[in-house]
Design a protein around this nucleic acid. Structure first.
Lengths: 324, 324
DNA sequence: TTGAAAGCGCTAACAC
DNA sequence: GTGTTAGCGCTTTCAA
């Protein structure tokens, strides 16, 4: 910057004013032009760190994720967070902890030392967590998770609406006898999606038949194993707790010679690209709004959006393909 | 830091020395203790940015990725890069461009302004690229991609060794008539894996039968459609260009009533978790070493590792499951 | 309309 | 052993 000033024959203060296009600064057209020329001439780039130091308060937002490597989900959260952060002139500092508490602490310490404006603490599936102590020291928003006492603002997927949506898709296709393969794992997803399923049936005036609700491990295996009972139940449509279960169900159905969607309609949940878009037939499902979760996270961190309840629920939209 | 100095009754220089545990600095036990107490007392955290400013040269490494959101692969590169960077006291600045050149330029500019030590430029699948101009201004290493003229150091998967490994797995299981479903897309993966397949057969003294090499789109659909021809070929084993093709082949095989691995063995490539580990039977495959790619990338960036050819090839290990 | 100078939090050379 | 001081690159009064 000094060099630029020298080259343009002005002071560093003037350079600062023109490169930042300071509002209340009257700079002569001539000086301004000379500075701009010098800038390109010398290939000058401001030093963001020095700027931060002198202004106090950086433009960093920290994002700590527990499973960047193992699922595509974290990637979408990062993507959403980053787009939104950039939009407001912030930059993401990402740390991957793979669930290790020590790493997590180091990561957060490192972020604090880098003067992050705030931290987004995210998990790869929606759940309740206990928040690490260090986070008390900094503005934090929970993404895809929440604290028991609600002491931190959180952004989560709207599981119930998602379950309702999935069921409604099936209802809209004319089905009345709709099975639901729920997960065996206690989680907001389990209770929320079930509540949504119930709500949708009720809204359609269909009486809930408990024998149509099954439990299975939330993997392919679970869906596969449930197939015989689905077939016996006389259901004409199945809402699966997630896409992987649906994939297992596909396997079972195929072995039994039952066609999708002609003989039975299938609805998934999660919209896991590699699976949903590419099984045969492509799976209709409900998307987990990871991108939006990340984006909304930075919005609440920056105070641009908020929710009285401290728990912002993001809608899970239906993704129609060919299994319904 | 001033506060700590005051509280401990010493100078800031002394504080600096003890918090950084400076080697050639003789500090009295007493003073050291007082400083440490003051540090915890006041909850002092060094300002990493100020440190950077004063030392010149930051501890940031930039990682620009083209598809964080759409594949789990980028996540693994990030993870590997981050672990390795941390090991050397560096921190990752991540930017996701989703292939958009403008975004990419902004991202790189932002990194430069943050004084990154260097940049890792990565793509989600192995390919040749033309490197953006800005990267001339900074130490760069290409990860999972390479420049035509080899002007930048690159770290890529060893496709040929991978193809050889996959074929050897099948050979080791006693197969002699091994089909290969290659991709239709020109790429290092296509030529490399084929070369590896050839090399493995040759090393086993098996004459190459060109009619056993098929071409298919690198998706489920491609694998599915190739099934009839595989069946006609009389092959007892199939090496698929990737896991998705294998997944499609599974579908075709199942419909034809052919069992894996009893009637035919299948080998994939990529080790795409969601697919490979969960199809039925679990798919044996060869892993793309994304984690290692990221880690090796920072190593060469930091000058810890290098390759005369400017193209470091990382091994693709076999992952044995139940399809062979 | 422009420039001088103080200060952001820290390190490093050197003096004491 | 420990303190003084001069920067690091920038912003921001305030004076000229």
């Amino acid at each position: 910057m000094r060099d630029v000033a020298k080259a343009a024959g002005v002071s560093v203060a003037t350079v600062s004013h023109v490169v930042n296009d300071k509002p209340g600064a009257r700079i002569g057209d001539d000086a301004r032009r000379r500075v701009q020329e010098a800038v390109v001439e010398l290939g000058y780039r401001p030093n963001a760190l020095a700027k931060t130091l002198s202004q106090g308060g950086s433009r960093f937002i920290g994002l700590v994720a527990d499973a960047i490597a193992t699922t595509p989900f974290a990637g979408q959260i990062i993507h959403g967070a980053q787009d939104e952060a950039w939009k407001h002139g912030y930059v993401l500092l990402v740390a991957n902890t793979e669930g290790n508490a020590a790493v997590e602490n180091d990561a957060i310490a490192m972020m604090l030392e880098h003067q992050v404006h705030g931290i987004l603490y995210s998990t790869w599936y929606h759940r309740e967590i206990v928040v690490p102590d260090v986070l008390q020291q900094v503005d934090t928003v929970l993404v895809d998770c929440f604290a028991a006492d609600g002491e931190f603002p959180a952004v989560v997927p709207d599981e119930e609406q998602g379950g309702r949506t999935a069921t409604e898709e099936l209802l809209a296709a004319g089905h009345r006898r709709i099975a639901f393969i729920n997960t065996t794992t206690p989680s907001p997803a389990r209770t929320g999606r079930l509540a949504g399923y119930r709500a949708a049936l009720e809204a359609s005036g269909i009486e809930m038949d408990e024998s149509l609700v099954f439990s299975a491990e939330p993997q392919q295996e679970g869906g596969y194993r449930t197939t015989p009972r689905i077939l016996e139940s006389g259901a004409t449509a199945v809402f699966c707790h997630n896409d992987r279960v649906a994939m297992g169900l596909y396997d079972g159905l195929r072995e039994a010679g039952v066609r999708v969607p002609e003989d039975i309609a299938v609805m998934g949940f999660d919209n896991q690209e590699v699976i949903a878009a590419h099984v045969r037939p492509p799976l209709s499902t409900v998307a987990l709004p990871h991108y939006e979760l990340g984006a909304a996270g930075v919005r609440v961190l920056l105070g641009l959006e908020s929710d009285e309840s401290h728990r912002l629920r993001i809608a899970c939209p239906a993704v129609r393909r060919a299994s319904v």
